[in-house]
Structures are given as structure tokens and as C-alpha cells.
């Protein structure tokens, strides 16, 4: 049994529909991650007592445990407490919360990357707090934050395949289902891999280029 192009072509529409679910899930989850990560970063930056420590531990715990187990846990535990969500929504929430632990650090690192002299110059020129942030610090922080967030977005796109285990009908799930019913795994799974590559590789090249353009020439 080797590659059958006719079969491969016939399953392509279904797999593309699965890829569309993957992309939608990634878009929704990255939105959660960007917002929640910002909340975590601000709370930790302001050093709000108790809350800051709780968020610190939350970030550490999320980073130290597998996404797969987090997804299973949410999928099986939530219905026990009367929270019934579709697999897709559960998956999006888990993915979003998982990545917020990483985006939070991106925001922090981006702000800390801005040279100390910039703050000092703003103070020396008696620039008030608001313009110091909006005109001096944030425009410079964005330069390092945007490419880093872009890299996480790609990583999340690839990690979303893990949601297939909780029956989210994304591209890997579709590929597995086709393979199981047709008893041919070579074509569907190879196409799934190629589809991931077809999205993530150009995206990575784009982000690398963006990074170079945004880089401050020192």
C-alpha cells in the first residue's frame, strides 16, 4: 500500500474544513491569551498584594503542566460542576488560558527591555506619567513584543492539534476519523502535516522579517 493520489484528493475538502476550524480556534484562543496575559502582566507589574502572588503561581503552574492534561481536566471536570460547554469552546478556553501564561511574560519582558535611560530622560524633561508611557515606553516596547507574540501565535496554532483528543473537530481529528473509517492513514495524516507546515512556515518567515524591520538599530 503506497500513496494514492486519487484518495488524497478526495479527502482534501474535508481536511480543509478541519483546518478552518483549527484557524478559528486559534484566533479565538489568541484573543483570550492577549487580553488575559495583559491583565496578569499589569497585576504583577503593579505588585498588587496577594493577587500578584496568586497570578505568579498561576503562571508557573500552567507552564509546568502539559496542555494535554489541562485539556482533559477541563473537558472532564467542568461538566461535573454543571458547566456544560461544547468541546470547541472548552478547547478554546484551555488554549487561551494556557498561552496567557506565556503572553504575560512577553509584555513584562517587552517593557523591561526599554532602556533605563529612556525613563530617566522622561523624568529629566519632567514629562508626566501618561505621555511617558504612551509616547516613550510603549512604542519602543512594541518592537520586541510584536514578534514574540507572533511566535506564540504560531506555536498555539500547532498546539491546537492537541484539542483533537477532546473531540474538537479540527484538522487532526478529521484526519484521524478519515483514517479510521477508510483504514488508510498515510494520505490523511500526511496531508494534515503538510497543511500545518503550509500555514506555519510562511507565517514564521513573515514574523522573522517583521522582527528585523522592527529591530532598533543599536
Amino acid at each position: 500500500m503506497t500513496w494514492n493520489s486519487e484518495f488524497a484528493l478526495s479527502i482534501l475538502p474535508d481536511l480543509l474544513r478541519g483546518l478552518w476550524i483549527t484557524i478559528q480556534a486559534t484566533m479565538a484562543a489568541i484573543t483570550i491569551a492577549l487580553v488575559l496575559g495583559l491583565v496578569v502582566a499589569v497585576v504583577r507589574y503593579l505588585r498588587i498584594p496577594v493577587l500578584s502572588q496568586v497570578f505568579g503561581f498561576f503562571v508557573l503552574f500552567i507552564r509546568g503542566t502539559p496542555l494535554l492534561v489541562q485539556a482533559y481536566a477541563a473537558f472532564f471536570i467542568l461538566p461535573h460542576y454543571g458547566i456544560v460547554l461544547s468541546a470547541l469552546v472548552t478547547g478554546i478556553i484551555v488554549l487561551g488560558i494556557n498561552y496567557s501564561a506565556y503572553t504575560a511574560e512577553v509584555y513584562r519582558a517587552g517593557i523591561e527591555d526599554v532602556a533605563k535611560g529612556q525613563w530617566e530622560a522622561a523624568t529629566a524633561l519632567s514629562l508626566p506619567g501618561r505621555p511617558t508611557w504612551t509616547r516613550i515606553v510603549l512604542p519602543q516596547a512594541v518592537r520586541s513584543i510584536v514578534p514574540m507574540l507572533g511566535n506564540y501565535w504560531i506555536q498555539m496554532f500547532k498546539d491546537s492539534a492537541i484539542l483533537s483528543v477532546i473531540t474538537v473537530a479540527e484538522v487532526l481529528y478529521v484526519g484521524q476519523t478519515i483514517g479510521g473509517s477508510e483504514f488508510r492513514f498515510l494520505e490523511p495524516l500526511t496531508i494534515v502535516g503538510l497543511l500545518f507546515l503550509a500555514v506555519s512556515y510562511p507565517a514564521a518567515v513573515l514574523i522573522r522579517r517583521l522582527e528585523r524591520r522592527l529591530a532598533i538599530s543599536r
Partner: peptide
């Protein structure tokens, strides 16, 4: 490097486990 970084590990795992036997 680009192929293994560009696809998910779970996809690679399934490919090696389910698809490779066909080869």
C-alpha cells in the same frame, strides 16, 4: 529542522504510529 518545527508534535506522533506502517 523546518519540517519538525513547522508541524505539531501530536501530528508527528500520529504519523509515525499510524501512517508509517503503510510504508
Amino acid at each position: 529542522i523546518e519540517v519538525f518545527r513547522g508541524t505539531s508534535m501530536i501530528v508527528q506522533l500520529f504519523w509515525f504510529f499510524y501512517a508509517l506502517p503503510f510504508l
